[in-house]
Each structure stands twice: as C-alpha cells, then as structure tokens.
Design a protein around this nucleic acid. Sequence first.
DNA 1: GACAAAGTGGACCTTGGAAGTCTATATTAT
DNA 2: ATAATATAGACTTCCAAGGTCCACTTTGTC
Lengths: 146, 146
Amino acid sequence: MNVGRRVDYAVRALSYLAGQPPGKIISRVDIEEKQGIPSYYLSKIMKDLVAGGLVHSHIGSKGGFSLARPPQAITIKEVYETVERPLTLMECLDKGEQYCSYCGVCTQRSVWNNVQNLVADYLGKVSIHDIAEPQGLKGRLSASRA
Amino acid sequence: MNVGRRVDYAVRALSYLAGQPPGKIISRVDIEEKQGIPSYYLSKIMKDLVAGGLVHSHIGSKGGFSLARPPQAITIKEVYETVERPLTLMECLDKGEQYCSYCGVCTQRSVWNNVQNLVADYLGKVSIHDIAEPQGLKGRLSASRA
DNA sequence: GACAAAGTGGACCTTGGAAGTCTATATTAT
DNA sequence: ATAATATAGACTTCCAAGGTCCACTTTGTC
C-alpha cells in the first residue's frame, strides 16, 4: 500500500502550474527543474494528464502546458486515477469472482472496500488548489534557507 | 496503492484459526487447503506471524499453529504491518529529508499523512474476530452452493 | 523560408519486489 | 523408529516502477 512517484510528480507539476498566472504556458523542462523531477520523466506523466483532460498542451516553440481547469476543480483523487490507475486496494474489489473465486463468501472483502472508500472520499475533497506552490519546490527550498 | 496477497493470505489464515476451538492446533497444509492458499506459500507468511507474536507454532508430528491471543486482540493493522511493512503511503512520511530533500517545504506531504492516518485508524479498529470463518473459504463456498 | 524550441510517441534499460516452488534439517508425537 | 510437522533458506519467474533517450512533428520568431 504505497503511492508511486508518478502521482507525486503529477501533483507537483499541477500545483506548480496552479501557482502561475492563469493561462500562462510553462514548459516541461521548467516544471522539472523547479519541482525537482528527473529529466524527461515528466513527459510521460504529462501525456496522461493531457489525455485525461486535466491540462492543455501547446506544441511548438514557446509551447508547454497549462491547467485545463481552475485548480479548485482538480482533485487529488482524479490526479491519482489519471496517472496511475483506478483507486483499488485489492484486485477483487474491482474484478470480483473473475479474480478470486471465493469472492462471494469472503469475509474480509468489505473491510478493504471500506478503507478504499475512506481514501477515495478524502482524496476527492482535496484539490490542487489546496497545495499550489508558485515557486516550485526548489524555489521554496532556497527561499527557506535565506 | 494496493494491498498484496501476503496480507490477504495472512488474514485468511488467522481468521480460520480464530474460527477453531481455542488452542486447537492446525497444520499449515490444512489452512492452505481450506483457505485456497497456494501450497508452501503460507510457510513464509506464518514465519512472520510467529516472529511477530501473533501465532504460536508447534513443531513436530501433529504440530501446527494456533493463535497467540484472542482474535479480538489482533487487528488488521497489526497483521498488515507484521507480514508486509509499516503502513506507509509514501516513503517520505517515514524517512523525511533523508528520502526527499524538499520534505521541509513540501505542500502535499500532509495530505498523504492524513490519508495514512485515516487508514491506520480504521484498520486498527477491525479485528480478526470480526472476520473469523470456522469453515475456511473453501468450506463456505461449497456450503453456499448446496 | 529557416531555424530553434517545444510537445508526441515510443523504444529501451535496470532494478527490485511479488508470488510461488522446493528441499534439507530439526523437532516431536506415537 | 517412523511419520508428520515447522523452519530456514535457496531458487525461479514475472512484471511494474522508475528512469533515459531519440526521431518526428508542430509552431513561433526572425
């Protein structure tokens, strides 16, 4: 039960975009640098975010990315499910009998189902706006050392 | 964010033990068969549960396992942490700056920390007693088909 | 029109962990 | 003595996470 870096990086990227003037276009390299994300890696994540309709991409010189919606309207749950997979604690919660033939008589299934709902509810209430950071992590870090 | 089979199997094994007359000794093979757990696999899991003090083992002929405590006193959280690892959603929640140098200025850390606490609290309140099943999954399955 | 600066799409690599299987050994009840 | 059992650990297979890189296309700017 752990959250991968894709989600971490996606949240960083989105919160950085959210901290910029609305509509401003930011390049992948800029995001990577300000947020301490490994070179190139972000390109795969942004692809998912574009496909999921969370950000807009702008091809060509001076291109980059911008939020497709106000940051208040992007929840962490949505981000998670866009860059990773549907929030599922155990395969059986999704696939049922197909995955585990004991599903129908399983007594622990509801426990994990409850946990999953707890998590989903909470993450559905936190938005990118709640963690936006204009300077990026690197900027905040140097500021805090000054 | 998903729970591995080790946890699933451990919960099945413990809940099966909990469904037996107190103190009765059950062999690994019996548990595996009744609970639909792959042969041999359970031996590694039981090792952890013994080391963690959740079950007692009895070596030798007619040996096997029995719960070390009343099933009400064994929480799923404890089982999870015994057979897998401490319940940690993101590495940084455990290791701090050591893991991620932006930790001190990270704005999403508290979100994952909250989720983690939600989950830990919930799992700490559910006990093996709550999901005990005397017949084992296989037994329940055939009974439900009768 | 040429050029540079971007995203797009996809190939590729490495590493580690999950899941599962098996065997030799020590221990114990009968 | 024998059979049944846990113990310890080796071993394999498979796959996903994380990361790196490049050929191609698109587009702004001079």
